[in-house]
């Protein structure tokens, strides 16, 4: 029975990794070699997770040391992801920024632990009950749980995203009543008014105000908007760079983007789906003083 426990554990672990590998417009990797790397490491994670309970049941306690060894490898994955993303980021027109990269790298490390957990639960249940079905069910449940737990919040949850008009007062560009920047060249002003989209993000509470104030979070927002809608800027037209500025009094954030495809609905949708970065998550309301200040 222990053989089928291990086999089943590896299988479900691999399926879990494959499921978590689904990539959308902002996720990395998006090319075959990235897939191969993560599938291979996921398979290793699944194998270790599947073998562990069987080994422990056979009173082979040395197996625990292998778990720590593998954990070491997973940290290596985080470093690998971080470094490769950082290097690519240098040549992005609109960067992800270090906060976003750290978030992505962390996700990649965590996914391997989840794979290990799924394999471990599957293998343990199979070995303990001596039948395959309970193992399959437990593994699938663990997979679903992992998917739900790691879903993470999005900007749409912590703020209202609304369209707002772009206009100039003298040389100053405003979105709604939030000042964004000073634009000198009349031609650039025309370009921004003609193609630009304005958004205002209105935070729902004090935590959301803190999150939106985080520069890394705003950079992630601009990066995602650009990834979805494209941009008209190039290295030599600095004025068309997307920009997010906050209104210090209310915590609202005004955004201008000059996209290749000016589609307002798509912009609103993309902004709402930007992940709330762990590094930026506001926690003011978790403290007593913070709650009092928010009254």
């Amino acid at each position: 029975m222990s053989d089928s426990a291990i086999g089943l554990g590896i299988l479900l672990g691999a399926v879990a990794r494959l499921y978590m590998l689904r990539s959308d417009y902002r996720r990395y990797p998006s090319y075959p070699h990235g897939y191969v790397i993560h599938l291979a490491l996921g398979l290793v994670a699944a194998a270790v997770g599947a073998v562990a309970p069987v080994a422990l049941m056979a009173r082979e306690y040395v197996a625990v040391t292998f778990l720590t060894l593998v954990a070491q490898q997973f940290r290596e994955i985080r470093r690998m992801e971080r470094e490769s993303l950082q290097r690519l980021d240098e040549w992005e027109l609109v960067r992800r920024g270090p906060d976003y990269i750290e978030g992505i790298a962390r996700v990649f490390e965590a996914r391997n632990y989840l794979v290990m957990m799924v394999a471990l639960i599957t293998s343990w249940t199979t070995a303990a009950t001596g039948r395959r079905w309970p193992g399959l069910v437990a593994g699938a449940a663990a997979m679903l749980l992992a998917a739900v737990l790691t879903e993470g919040q999005r900007l749409g949850k912590i703020c209202r995203v609304q369209p707002a008009s772009l206009h100039f007062r003298g040389p100053d560009l405003y979105v709604g009543d939030i000042r964004l920047m000073n634009v000198g060249l009349p031609r650039m002003r025309e370009e921004i008014l003609r193609w630009g989209l304005g958004l205002i993000l209105e935070p729902v509470d004090q935590n959301a105000v803190d999150s939106l104030a985080n520069v890394g979070q705003r950079q992630a927002l601009l990066h995602d908007l650009t990834a979805v809608l494209g941009t008209r800027r190039d290295l030599d037209v600095a004025e068309l760079a997307p920009l997010a500025r906050r209104d210090g009094a209310t915590g609202r954030v005004g955004v201008v983007i000059v996209p290749a495809e000016p589609d307002l609905e798509a912009a609103l949708e993309a902004a709402r789906r930007v992940p709330l970065l762990e590094a930026s998550r506001g926690r003011a309301l978790k403290s007593q003083a913070g709650r009092r200040a928010a009254d």
């Binding site: 920047m181 000073n182 634009v183 000198g184 009349p186 290295l235 030599d236 037209v237 600095a238």
Partner: peptide, 27 residues
């Protein structure tokens, strides 16, 4: 405007208006 446009492009700088006939190009 012609000078600022050319300089802005080659220096990869944004042009900002000080409002008195003077523009600064800022990287």
């Amino acid at each position: 405007e012609r000078i600022a446009t050319v300089l802005g492009k080659v220096l990869r700088a944004a042009t900002h208006d000080l409002g008195d006939g003077t523009w600064v190009l800022i990287r």
